[in-house]
């Protein structure tokens, strides 16, 4: 669920479309927008405080075949992303789990890891190398 929530909506939608899965389902909770209060800690490690809210979309659904229940709670206001994430979550509890993993989750994780690596590599290129100047006199 964490992977699906963090995934860029465009990548998830594209992989979902490529996988060609379209199981019948019924909404247990149709996608709805809401807010989650994000907390931080004083000094990074101390007492919690309320930093500010973020928008989220959540939904729950039941697959008609087998009755597996899928949940999603994703950042932003994106009903379609929440629907696909909940469907993946439900399918992961069925015989289609391997297919979902191979065709959606694994490539998604790879793309995200690549983006993360590229960012870390750019940051690494801005790391300061200190060198000490030789002092004069002798």
């Amino acid at each position: 669920m964490g992977l699906l929530a963090r995934a860029p909506a465009g990548d998830l939608a594209a992989l979902w479309a490529e996988a060609g899965l379209s199981p019948a389902f019924a909404w247990a909770r149709a996608p709805e927008f809401g807010g989650v209060m994000v907390r931080g800690r004083a000094g990074g490690t101390g007492a919690p405080f309320n930093l500010g809210e973020m928008t989220v979309t959540r939904c729950a659904l039941t697959l008609e075949e087998g009755g597996a229940v899928g949940h999603a709670c994703v950042a932003g206001r994106d009903r379609e992303k929440a629907r696909i994430a909940a469907l993946c979550d439900a399918l992961m509890q069925t015989a289609a789990a391997e297919e979902v993993r191979a065709r959606i989750l694994t490539p998604l994780a790879a793309r995200m890891a690549q983006a993360r690596r590229a960012r870390a590599a750019k940051a690494a290129a801005t790391k300061v190398d200190f060198f000490t100047m030789v002092r004069g006199e002798n």
Binding site: G34, V36, V38, R39, G44, E53, T55, A120
Partner: peptide, 23 residues
Amino acid sequence: YRTTLPRFGASRPIETADMACKR
């Protein structure tokens, strides 16, 4: 706009020590 959103709850405190730092 924020006032129109139902509050689903509060997050766990974020762990800034685990940040993927760009700076």
